[in-house]
Design a binder for these strands. Structure first.
Lengths: 109, 109
DNA sequence: TCATCATAACACCTAAAGGTGTCATTTTGC
DNA sequence: GCAAAATGACACCTTTAGGTGTTATGATGA
């Protein structure tokens, strides 16, 4: 019961710009839904759905305080994206990529 | 006419696992659609659509060689994701985050 | 206990994503 | 010039994501 089994993909979770804004918003402070939904032009229900996706991906944690539920950033799953990006570091260099393209173009035609 | 105006978001482009596989596949070598679609359990048309999304995001380049179009990785737009992730580096440290949570919990209740 | 407030849960709607199939276009090689 | 091969473009279908509204649940405070 340690980790809540990622159902929603982390990549999919951060695909939506609204959810990316939510993560930045929840980075500094813990917030209840009412406060969060005031920052976005949509219903509380819609905000709650987005929070549920983020929670499924393990990107936010929920904590009950009295009658309100507070959400907070949990950045650990972002490591998966970081690792994925690391694979492409070897292709990052513009000059190297350009050279490789040039060589193959030359040998093909 | 330098850059092809990103219509599809980069975050959205890498949200699909098929497209992520395509990027890895196209990292090493330039490939035509026929060869690419042999690597995925779907129609050439579907593969072409995914490639179109990647192309819109600037993540692949297309080059016509005779009657075939070859695709190749263009990793530059991934920098946007890297920058976005960099924002969360300050919240990365588990101990720091735990401490912050503890402090706020204490002061709240 | 009871009214109130915050959130969760439910049914529902609309638009877009992801997929297939078919046809048009262009290049190759004879 | 013409048949074959590779890709692009189009119409279409199905599923899901994102959204709203309403109702149910649970905690607060007089």
């Amino acid at each position: 019961m340690a980790e809540p089994a990622v159902r929603h993909d982390v990549f999919q979770a951060i695909a939506d710009p609204t959810r990316r804004s939510m993560l930045k918003l929840l980075a500094d402070k813990e917030m209840p839904i009412a406060a969060i939904s005031q920052c976005f032009p949509m219903t509380r229900t819609a905000v709650n759905k987005h929070l549920h996706v983020l929670s499924d991906a393990g990107l936010v944690s929920r904590r009950k305080v009295g009658r309100e539920t507070r959400y907070r950033l949990r950045p650990e799953p972002l490591a998966e994206i970081k690792e994925w990006l690391a694979f492409f570091d070897q292709y990052w260099d513009d000059r190297l990529a350009a050279l490789q393209r040039f060589v193959e173009t030359d040998s093909d035609e």
